[in-house]
Nucleic acid binder design. Sequence first.
RNA 1: UCCUCCUUAGCUCAGUUGGUUAGAGCACAUGACUGUUAAUCAUGGGGUCUCAGGUUCAAGUCCUGAAGGGGGAGCCA
Length: 475
Amino acid sequence: MRTKIKEILNRQDTDYQVNVKGWVRSFRNNQFIALNDGSCMANIQVVIELGTDEHVVRKITNGASISVDGTVIASQGKGQRVEIKAAQITILGECDTDKFPLQLKNRPSLEYLREIAHLRFRTNTFGAVFRVRHTLAYAIHKFFNDRGFVYLHTPIVTASDAEGAGEMFRVTTLPFDNPPRKEDGSINFEEDFFARSTNLTVSGQLEAELGAMAFSEVYTFGPTFRAENSNTARHLAEFWMIEPEVAFNDITDNMDLAEEFIRYIIGYAVEHNREDLEFLTQRLADEEKQKPMNERSEMGLMEKLEFVLNNKFERITYTEAIDILLNSPAYKKKKFQYEVKWGIDLQSEHERYLVEKHFKKPVIVIDYPKDIKAFYMRMNDDDKTVAAMDILAPGIGEIVGGSQREERLEKLEKRMAEMHVPAEELSWYLDTRRFGTVPHAGFGLGFERLVLFVTGMTNIRDVIPFPRTPGKADF
RNA sequence: UCCUCCUUAGCUCAGUUGGUUAGAGCACAUGACUGUUAAUCAUGGGGUCUCAGGUUCAAGUCCUGAAGGGGGAGCCA
């Protein structure tokens, strides 16, 4: 019966028999094995007896997997509370140290580790990142479940391309070299698997709205796909998104939900992954030391998370945001590259100024001009703005995008016509407005951006196990 | 997609004005070592200087192009 290393390190007593299995992180002095099984950041020290079979000892190398039977005892040395006095060591899998790229004393770069993503889980950094990622995913389900939300599985293959959230990946079984064609020469998708053109989903929102019109509160949490040629540290072609949708909620309820949600899951991670987050805090601090003074962030990672937990998000309207920017020293000194005036979409530099310089905390911006937002967002009484909301986070930018949805059929149809959204393809969506429509609101949160924020990592490719980006789909 | 920077040993990096046989730390191998903590000590092996052209008596170093990567921007989550 195997015991997890985390369990042994958490127990207060000693002098009991255990079996542990894991991977060797280091082997010192022909005597001390640092063993890790991924259950926690810390290794356990295994002490081997004099006279252990030399054939076995020679195979205890960095990266090798072993099984150890022995006794947990109070450590005879400094540096750890307990250790395992080994009675029997079995080599499960040898590791050719000459070829194994991970060594404790090497400092491989994150970029290099990305090329060996199948092995990077065995490093402290990625062990911590993906344990935190797991905890966040669990906390998300727990948050919604505790509040009576139904987890709705929206389709991954979709015929809907009406939302316009981005370029889509086509799904087809038609032959590439000689697809069936119509008389006008266009490809005849009626002969395709689904008898129509289909794509990978860019968002589950429209389908989530259908569920909210019956269950009152639903959420989706699944993969989404965007075929944009985006090469940045904040974009992936395949990423996971959380999209709650709540009937009877207005934009203020929506903000309250989003804020409570973010605070809850961060708090859950801080509570359950403290060791990992403290390691990541130190890692980030070490990385920051490489930067010039003026580029360093004012807060450490743990400090930042505590700050978010203890401070309300700032809430402003788009119009107020524009005023702040127009009156900012940065604007007066012509520091902004892009023009600032009412009606523009806020650029990265504007969002960064508001979040990182002006408010120095997460900011919720609402009531955007209708022309820069999607057709389904609810028109405000001024007829110029819509009840949209974006949550902007320091270092990440937009982490949440949401809105109160337009529940009035005539207004929705009018907006769809203005924005050239094909109403006939979305008749199922419009049915919700025909049959017992209610005010409702929801938002989308990019899971990897949340993981970035919580782990203090800076590249989104380092917080998803196997990143898919333009030109890259390894593993 | 655009701008910009980078590519030298398994990894992280030096490499001066274009000039002899391209270096260091770590890793790895061999040996020593039973209380180590990124263990330590000794010895040793390890290079198509990303690739393809070009300039030159001479190119890791200069020029052109390609590929890969980083940072920033756009699109967004």
